[in-house]
């Protein structure tokens, strides 16, 4: 995958993710809605490829205005990943040489790998994650389960232990998938399925779309680093 193609794909996927986020704010109060109407228009421009450099810069400024409006992220990690992708794209656009463009886009790929690996690491060093109690607590009393019936999962100790280790092993082993394009493809399919499950169980739909928007960076990165070596 060429750098230009990966960047274009990132612009389109991020534009779609932003559009989805914006539409969810259309029933909010006017001051909030207006910010997201502007953002939706910019996201559409990004999808169709109209003046993407300027559009990304405006989206970044708008992102800062939204951060200020909500005094932090509205949707936690999904908003942070949105800003990270936007910043990396803006750096790519202003980079003086292709090497610096690669460094900026590679940083996004690096952070994507860390997003899985560190998530796995902070869990595996916690005894409650290793014995399944942490995931039990997520279902038992955290704010995340999307319905009351999902709270019943807290009683399935074996299932939760299996799920905990499945998630931790996947997250910790994710960097190893970079050694071949096939293993990376499989890992990204599993990762997308993981985000899909989180969206279904915990309502974290925005994470699904925005994490997928970062995947072209790692597909490019894998080919750039491991095939040219």
């Amino acid at each position: 995958m060429s750098l230009d193609y990966a960047i274009r794909l990132t612009e389109m996927l991020m534009g779609f993710a932003f559009a989805q986020q914006c539409i969810e704010h259309f029933k909010s109060q006017a001051s909030e809605r207006n910010l997201f109407i502007v953002r939706l228009l910019l996201a559409i421009m990004l999808i169709i490829g109209f003046q993407t450099r300027w559009v990304a810069a405006l989206l970044l400024l708008l992102g800062l205005a939204i951060l200020r409006r909500f005094q932090g992220p509205y949707n936690g990690g999904a908003d942070r990943m949105s800003l990270l992708i936007l910043c990396c794209l803006c750096l790519v656009y202003i980079a003086p040489t292709q090497r610096w463009q690669e460094v900026a886009f590679g940083y996004l790929a690096f952070q994507l790998v860390l997003s899985y690996f560190i998530s796995g690491w902070v869990k595996v060093v916690n005894k409650d994650w290793r014995n399944g109690h942490a995931l039990r607590d997520v279902f038992l009393f955290s704010a995340y389960p999307a319905s009351e019936s999902l709270r019943q999962w807290s009683k399935s100790a074996r299932l939760l232990l299996f799920m905990s280790w499945g998630v931790m092993l996947f997250e910790l082993l994710f960097p190893i998938s970079l050694f071949s394009s096939t293993s990376l493809g499989i890992a990204l399919i599993i990762a997308a399925a993981f985000h899909f499950a989180n969206a279904c169980l915990f309502g974290l739909n925005r994470f699904f779309w925005i994490w997928i928007a970062a995947y072209p960076s790692i597909l490019w990165f894998q080919q750039r680093i491991f095939i040219t070596l």
């Binding site: 951060l67 942070r80 869990k123 942490a134 955290s142």
Partner: peptide, 21 residues
């Protein structure tokens, strides 16, 4: 507010803290 996006901690669900209602 921006720095946590540029240098994220990625420590999702590291501990299950008391949950507000």
């Amino acid at each position: 507010l921006l720095i946590p996006a540029l240098i994220p901690s990625w420590n999702f669900f590291d501990i299950i803290a008391p949950s507000p209602r």
